[in-house]
Computed example of a mutant assay.
Amino acid sequence: MLARTLGALLCAGLLVGAAQARDYRYSDAHLHYVDFFQETEGMPALLEAMDKAGIEQSMISGIPVAKKWHEDEPKRPRYYAGDDADAYWYSATDSYVAAAVEKLPPEQRKRFHPFLSGINPVDKNAVAHIERMLELHPGLWQGIGEVFTRHDDLTALTSGDTPRANNEAMTRIYHLAAERDLPVLLHSNITSKRERNPLYLAEIEEPLRNHPHTRFIWAHAGSSMEIHRHQEKMDFLLPTLTRLLEDYPNLYVDLSWSVLQPYLLDDKGTPRKAWLALVERFPERFMLGSDVVGRFSSLGEQFQGFAPFLDALPEDIAHKVARDNFLAVLPKPR
């Protein structure tokens, strides 16, 4: 009798748990349609992967650089870090994105929010490219980025000067972004692989302070997997990010894959209370991104990885982070 009672209670508990399971619909705030060779699986593969992953809406951009297959390299590299050959700035990436989106039927096209990325961030002419693309494709572009500034070894491999988020070329772009109501997705590492302090903090903080009418989405919260390989967890990231969110209401945070661990989740996959508290304190400032590059089969896995963290948040906040916050940062309908 006792065993039957316990069994019934267990079944009832499982049914209640199943009834209370959350069904998230996602917006992907950080997706690259092409890879570092400007190649892609194509729009049918992307749409299929989005449907399987429950992704209703997605930012879509190119990759602002192309990796060179150098004359002296016997094998074509598979990634920008595959060998020591350069990468170079590649503006045609925006045309690939525009062509792919504009071919879609209207209902599918509404799911995508194209961002302009094909700019050299150390060239003061870059703002002219953005203006030209806005004129060539009126009504298409809804943001700028991902702009590559401090970006691990890619910074050293890319031909030309070291890009910074606080240089004059980028200042011109921030002014244009404010005028056109376009958010800017910015990759700006908070430090180098070796320095255990926020070495490059000024490069992201100066634009936040000097351009209060520009909405900034900070890719990966300034972290990267390459930094983690050398110094694992940056203890200064959480307090620094907290202060920036307090001081700059124009800052939004892309919680893509390099933030998931070791920050949002511990080694056992348990959500960290301090990060939960931060998201609850600023419930409209965080969004999720896959950061896939031209290949889309991992979309479902990327977003499922966030489920333990989302489930630990209040349900209304979890849905904001999963879907609504990215859509809210886009240009207002005219």
Rank of each mutant, 00 (worst) to 15 (best):
R180T: 07
K110S: 12
P183W: 06
T93V: 14
W89H: 09
S117L: 05
T171Q: 11
A126L: 04
T171Y: 11
N167I: 04
K110I: 02
Y96M: 07
D181V: 09
I130Q: 03
V127K: 03
E179S: 13
D94K: 04
A92S: 08
L186N: 05
W141K: 12
L154F: 05
A98I: 08
F115V: 11
E131A: 14
S95F: 03
Y88S: 01
A100L: 05
T93A: 09
H187L: 08
E179K: 14
V101A: 06
F115H: 09
E102R: 10
E107W: 02
H129Y: 12
L134Y: 05
L104W: 11
F148A: 03
P106W: 06
D161F: 00
P163S: 00
A98L: 04
A98S: 10
P121F: 06
Y90P: 06
S91W: 10
V127G: 01
I119K: 01
H175Y: 13
A178D: 07
H113L: 11
P163M: 01
D152Q: 12
D153V: 11
A99E: 12
P163H: 01
V184K: 10
D84V: 11
L182A: 01
P163I: 01
K103E: 14
Y90H: 13
N125V: 00
P121E: 11
A98R: 05
E102V: 00
A100P: 00
Y174F: 14
R164S: 06
E168Q: 13
F115K: 09
W89P: 01
E146Q: 08
T171W: 00
D84S: 14
M170E: 09
G82P: 05
I144A: 05
G139V: 13
G82M: 04
E179Q: 14
R111S: 12
A126D: 07
I173L: 06
H137C: 11
Y174N: 04
E107G: 01
V184F: 13
M170L: 15
Y96V: 10
T155P: 03
F112T: 05
R132F: 02
P106Y: 03
D83N: 15
A165N: 03
R109T: 04
D153T: 14
L154I: 15
T158G: 04
R109K: 14
A128F: 06
N125A: 15
G118Q: 02
G82K: 07
V97I: 12
V122W: 08
G118D: 04
A98W: 03
P138A: 00
L182W: 09
A165S: 14
N166W: 04
H187F: 05
E179C: 06
